[in-house]
Design a protein around this nucleic acid. Structure first.
Lengths: 115, 115
DNA sequence: ATCGTTCATCGTAAATATACGATGGGAAAA
DNA sequence: TTTTCCCATCGTATATTTACGATGAACGAT
């Protein structure tokens, strides 16, 4: 018995989960959108565009920076944020692959009682 | 002063964040993969394929079920899980749109000091 | 040098998430 | 009916997340 159960998670699974975690809050979903719409960088205007205090926005930015989705650049007294294009492309690609693979099977769904 | 800061998050932002949250753990990333590979349903084999206790796997399944990414179907003593095809297509599409829009701008990145 | 602006960080409180053992219910099998 | 198997849920401990006010560092402007 006890099938060893050694299997750890792959780097890929951990990576996807980590990115998903970084995007798992509406504020961070929106921040990515805003930074991208602003085309280039931005700073504390984010605070005005979000229903959150400055300290909280800063924390969310930190989380996005942690996974590399955005970059911050000190520009005088302000800090200029922008999306990290390379990382964004990688992530876009990885999630597309992930979802596409999920969609591949025949998907003989169980009776949709959903329980 | 105080620009009102009324802006709440849109349903769309909340939806994307909620799905991302459901996928924000390696176990759940993997469970989706496993359920999809098994083509149709599955049950406690998941427990054998994951480095987690049965109660924990059950909790992860519950989270995936919460957002509608999977369905459970009682089949005798077992419970049969499978991905929810419709929801998966919707999510695939929504994330693709989200990422593609993020990728649209010119992305005049800030100096990559990253700070 | 002092002031105002812009942020990051600290400290902290409350809420959520993660993990597991133990318990219990429901259905097939004995 | 009793046992067995499969799974959900409860209870619980620990860790992480979220949010905010307060503080302080960095810089430009005065």
């Amino acid at each position: 018995m006890a099938t060893a159960k050694t299997q750890d998670f792959t780097d890929d699974e951990i990576f996807l989960a980590d990115i998903a975690k970084a995007l798992s809050h509406p504020a961070r979903i929106k921040i990515m959108k805003l930074l991208s719409e602003m085309n280039a960088c931005m700073c504390g205007e984010l605070v005005n565009l979000l229903p959150l205090a400055q300290a909280t926005v800063s924390q969310h930015l930190k989380e996005l920076k942690r996974v590399g989705l955005i970059q911050g650049d000190i520009d005088g007294p302000k800090v200029c944020y922008c999306v990290n294009v390379e990382m964004l492309l990688r992530v876009t690609n990885d999630f597309q692959n992930y979802f596409n693979n999920l969609n591949k099977g025949e998907k003989i769904s169980c009776k949709p009682k959903t329980k």
